[in-house]
Amino acid sequence: MNAIIVTGGDIDLSLLESYISKNKYTIVISVDAAVKKLEETGKLPNVMVGDFDTLADEKRLEYYAGLGIEIVRHNPVKDFSDTELAIDWAYKRNITEIVIFGALGRRFDHTFANILMLRKYKKLGVDITVVDRCNRIYVKSNPFILEKRLVWGKYISFFAVKEKVFIESLTGVAYPVENKYLDNIENPSLFISNEIVDDYMSVIFDGEILVVESRD
């Protein structure tokens, strides 16, 4: 099962609409007031999650409930962000693939927390991808191959999830690598802004890496 989550950060509405239309999702989840952004695309969620302090419109919530949309409401005084509560709702229903729109934006605290959640739920068996107009971000824990024509943009970057990760080989890129550590202390920017130059890129490593496909 898979899901798309729309949360409160910056969202390119045309990209969101296109993504929903071109991809099949079991369920669409909106977080707090992000339902307004979904409305602008002509879409409605299956589920709404949050404390709804940002939406702050009881009549609107009643209207959505009347349409058969499930409302999962939380106390504003809580230990988790609304976005994490939405991810957790999906996880507890055996959803194993999630794409999130609106996870990046002006609030760096929320952005950073959202990126950290990628690893938390990867360990629980959930593959989460954060998407915006310029970036596609996810965590990998096993060697993998990327096809150049399918990457999000021109650039591919890697970051160690823990302090360091041993990269056995990185091939098919402008700057190939053999037997080198990706180290957040010694060389945190060493593996950014590489480019795939062959039809496929391959990376073999030991550990967990954060992958960022990006474009200007």
Rank of each mutant, 00 (worst) to 15 (best):
R60Y: 14
F80E: 14
F158S: 06
F159D: 00
I100Q: 05
D109S: 05
I87V: 15
T26F: 06
I128C: 07
L118A: 09
K148S: 12
G42F: 03
Y138E: 12
A33G: 01
S30N: 03
I156K: 06
R119A: 12
A33K: 13
G105M: 07
D109W: 09
T129Y: 13
I98F: 10
S21R: 15
F80W: 13
D132W: 06
I71Y: 03
D109R: 09
I145F: 08
S81M: 10
G125T: 05
V77S: 01
Y19M: 03
V35R: 02
E70C: 01
V35H: 00
K24G: 10
D53M: 08
R60F: 14
L38Q: 04
P76N: 06
K37Y: 06
F52E: 07
E17V: 03
K123C: 03
N75Y: 08
T54Y: 08
G105H: 05
L116I: 03
K22N: 14
I20N: 08
K123W: 01
Y121P: 05
P143V: 08
V126S: 04
S30E: 06
E147P: 02
Y121K: 03
K59E: 13
I115K: 03
E70T: 01
T83W: 08
K154F: 05
D79F: 10
L85T: 04
G125E: 06
L44F: 12
Y19D: 04
Y64I: 02
V139D: 09
D132C: 09
K148N: 15
E17K: 15
T83N: 04
K92S: 11
L16W: 11
A113S: 14
V47F: 03
N75T: 07
E58L: 11
D51N: 05
T26D: 15
I87R: 04
A34H: 05
E147C: 09
V99A: 12
V126T: 12
A113E: 01
S157K: 09
V28E: 01
L146G: 00
F52H: 09
D79V: 10
I128W: 06
A56P: 00
W89K: 09
R119Y: 14
N142Y: 11
I71K: 05
F158M: 06
K43C: 11
R60D: 01
T41M: 06
